[in-house]
C-alpha cells in the first residue's frame, strides 16, 4: 500500500508523530485560551509569550541553578502562573467591562514588551535544552524517541485532567456557571473576581507547562511562542470557543492533519490549517464545537 502511494512507512509515521507532537501543543494552548476567554471575556494574546516564559524559566533554572527538567516542569508553570495572577490583578481586570479591543491591545502590547525584553537580553537565536529522556524504541515501522512519546502522553493527560476539572468537579461547576452568569454566581456567595484571577493563573500556567515541555524539542528562544500562537488562534477559531473537549480534539486533529499534509502535499503543509479555518468560518462560523449564543 505504501509503495502504491509512493511514500515510505517511515516517513509517514515520522510525520504522524511530528503532527501528534505539534497537535499536543495546539491542544494545550488552545485549551488555556478557551478557558480564559470564557471567564475573562479577553482573548489572551500574551499566551504565546507566556508559553515562551515557561520554556525560558526552565532553561534559566537549568543553566543558572542546575535545576533538573523534572523539577522545572512543576516549578516553572507555578512561577509563570503566579506572574499571570499579578498581571490579572494589576491590569487585565480593568478591561473586562470594555470592548474586546482593549483586551486585545493590552495583551498584545504585553506580549510585544515581554518578547522584546527577552530579545534584548538573550538575542533571537535559540538556546538548546538537553533532552531529559534520551534514547528511543524501534517499533519496526519507525523509531520512537522516548521524550517525544512522553510529550504526547503527558499532553493527553494534562488535557484530560483539565477537562475533568472543568466538567466534573465542583470548582469546574462554578467556572461553567460563572461563564454563563457571573452576577448570579456571585450573588450565591462565590467570590467571582477571585475565581477569575484563579482561572487566568491556571490558563497561563498551562501555557507555561506547554513551554517547558517544548523546550527540549524546539529550542528556547524569545519568539518561540509567536509563530505557534498564530496557528493556535486558528485552531481555536476552527474548534470554537465554547467547548473544552472541542479544543482538545481540534488541537490534536489539526496537528495530525498538518503532519499528513507534509507527507502527501508538502507545499500546503504550512497553510492547510488556515485553509481549514477559512472553510469552517464559511460553513460554521461558531466553530466545529462552538455554540452560537
Amino acid at each position: 500500500m505504501f509503495e502504491l502511494l509512493g511514500i515510505s512507512p517511515g516517513a509517514l509515521f515520522g510525520q504522524l508523530l511530528v503532527g501528534l507532537i505539534n497537535g499536543a501543543f495546539y491542544a494545550m494552548l488552545s485549551l488555556g485560551l478557551a478557558v480564559i476567554f470564557g471567564m475573562l471575556n479577553v482573548i489572551n494574546f500574551t499566551h504565546g509569550a507566556q508559553y515562551m516564559l515557561g520554556a525560558f524559566v526552565a532553561w534559566l533554572m537549568l543553566t543558572q541553578l542546575a535545576v533538573p527538567f523534572w523539577v522545572a516542569l512543576v516549578v516553572a508553570p507555578v512561577i509563570v502562573g503566579a506572574l499571570g495572577v499579578v498581571l490579572e490583578r494589576l491590569l487585565l481586570k480593568r478591561v473586562y467591562h470594555l470592548d474586546h479591543l482593549y483586551g486585545f491591545l493590552l495583551t498584545f502590547g504585553l506580549a510585544l514588551i515581554i518578547e522584546g525584553g527577552f530579545q534584548l537580553k538573550w538575542g533571537s537565536a535559540g538556546q538548546p535544552y538537553p533532552n531529559p529522556l534520551p534514547g528511543g524504541t524501534n517499533l519496526g515501522f519507525m523509531f520512537l524517541p522516548n521524550y517525544r512519546a512522553f510529550v504526547v502522553v503527558a499532553a493527553l493527560v494534562i488535557c484530560l485532567a483539565t477537562w475533568f476539572l472543568i466538567e466534573r468537579t465542583r470548582l469546574g461547576g462554578y467556572l461553567r456557571a460563572a461563564t454563563e452568569n457571573p452576577t448570579l454566581v456571585r450573588a450565591f456567595g462565590i467570590n467571582v473576581p477571585r475565581l477569575i484571577t484563579l482561572t487566568y493563573g491556571l490558563g497561563v500556567g498551562l501555557a507555561a507547562l506547554a513551554g517547558v515541555l517544548a523546550a527540549p524539542i524546539y529550542q528556547v528562544s524569545p519568539l518561540m511562542g509567536t509563530n505557534l500562537v498564530l496557528v493556535v488562534f486558528a485552531v481555536v477559531v476552527i474548534g470554537g470557543m465554547g467547548s473544552i473537549m472541542g479544543s482538545i480534539v481540534t488541537g490534536f486533529g489539526l496537528g495530525v492533519i498538518e503532519g499528513l499534509t507534509k507527507v502527501f502535499y508538502p507545499e500546503a503543509s504550512s497553510t492547510v490549517i488556515f485553509v481549514i479555518m477559512a472553510i469552517v468560518l464559511l460553513i460554521k462560523p461558531a466553530g466545529l464545537f462552538g455554540q452560537t449564543k
Binding site: G173, Y174, A177, N181, V185, F188
Partner: peptide
C-alpha cells in the same frame, strides 16, 4: 437563572 451548562444536580449543588 438556571444554568444551561449545568445539569439539574449541578444546578442544585451550585450555591455554596
Amino acid at each position: 437563572g438556571v444554568f444551561s451548562s449545568l445539569n439539574v444536580d449541578e444546578n442544585l449543588l451550585l450555591p455554596p
